[in-house]
Design a protein around this nucleic acid. Sequence first.
DNA 1: GCGGTGACTGACA
DNA 2: CTGTCAGCCACCG
Length: 114
Amino acid sequence: MSSTNPAYLAICAAVRAIPPGCVSSYGAIAARAGLPGRARLVAKAMSGADEPDLPWYRVLRSNGQIAFPKGSSGYREQLRHLKAEGVVVKNGRVDLTRFGAFADQDLDRALWGF
DNA sequence: GCGGTGACTGACA
DNA sequence: CTGTCAGCCACCG
């Protein structure tokens, strides 16, 4: 069911704005949604969001780690989606310097010769 | 109104 | 690297 709450709508829009094969953090999503410091609200939105189009799995912690306890069903689900999009997950963690949606992509090209 | 809780975060030891 | 702490805000009993 769609929420009429503008904050939730802004959060959903920010999450949808993450390009495929990239990831972002709760804090970054909150800031992008015009809600600085509301990372927990983003988490709440993800928990309550039932929209199938919402790429919630592209949202990680600020350190690139998956927000779920390792081994939980949600963890495995998120891990599966990320790998399906080509995101490299190392020990339950993603290198934000390479897959961060709002990070320096040019640096990636410089380092890898693209 | 109040204290506990959580898919969080940055600072600090 | 890990662990602790304070700040943060919506929700619940």
